[in-house]
């Protein structure tokens, strides 16, 4: 085939993209989905829901003991009171790190994750090595994340399900007394809320 005239590139759809289009066509014809609504969902999860939500929850818990108490007792309600509600009807549980115990969240089953507060999970959270190793060797996994905990610190691993998802509340860093919730939220990383990291130290 010569390509020396009229460079007319064809479009290609890879097989996965073509199958998704096929499903969309069928589901739209049947009135089960509305293409415009699909775009809204994509935009929401790409740009509007993310770890900033969770960081605000954690910062409020650090700054407001009453809120922390509610968060501990009924995380679904506490998080919902800030306007973050799960679409899948899941319940939330907040697990608080202490000097003795570090919490780590995984979903060994698939990739259940607290979307409403953290957005969609990072690639490694969904990948087989994390899903299997977080349970077998949490200390080793944390070391790969650059987090070496004292041997005396217990690590509790929480296995998420479709019905129950976990949010780790990291320990509040020293030197942040009197900080506003907004300023505190900047110290709370996504990894700290999964348990593969700690909150940032104040600069």
């Amino acid at each position: 085939m010569s390509h020396n005239h009229d460079h007319q590139h064809d479009n290609e759809l890879d097989p996965f993209a073509a199958r998704v289009r096929a499903l969309e066509t069928i589901l739209t014809q049947k009135g089960l989905i509305d293409p415009a609504a699909i775009d809204v969902i994509v935009d929401t999860y790409e740009t509007k829901i993310g770890p900033r939500n969770g960081a605000k929850v954690v910062a409020k818990a650090w700054a407001d003991p009453d809120f922390a108490a509610v968060l501990k007792r009924d995380a679904t309600a506490a998080i919902g009171s800030l306007g973050y509600t799960g679409r899948q009807g899941e319940h939330m549980q907040a697990v608080f790190n202490t000097a003795d115990t570090h919490n780590l969240v995984v979903c060994t089953l698939c990739s259940c994750y607290p979307w409403s507060v953290l957005g969609l999970p990072p690639v490694w959270y969904k990948a087989p090595p994390y899903r299997s190793r977080a349970v077998i060797d949490p200390r080793g996994v944390l070391e790969e994340f650059g987090l070496t905990l004292p041997r005396t610190t217990k690590i509790r691993v929480w296995d998420s399900t479709a019905e129950l998802r976990y949010l780790v509340v990291p320990m509040r860093p020293d030197g942040t007394d009197g900080w506003s919730e907004e300023r505190l939220a900047d110290l709370v990383t996504r990894d700290a809320m999964i348990g593969t990291g700690l909150a940032r130290e104040p600069a």
Binding site: A17, V20, I33, I38, I41, V42, Y45, L120
Partner: peptide, 8 residues
């Protein structure tokens, strides 16, 4: 397509 499959 991944976003679309997710959103569907």
């Amino acid at each position: 397509w991944q976003a679309e499959a997710f959103a569907m």
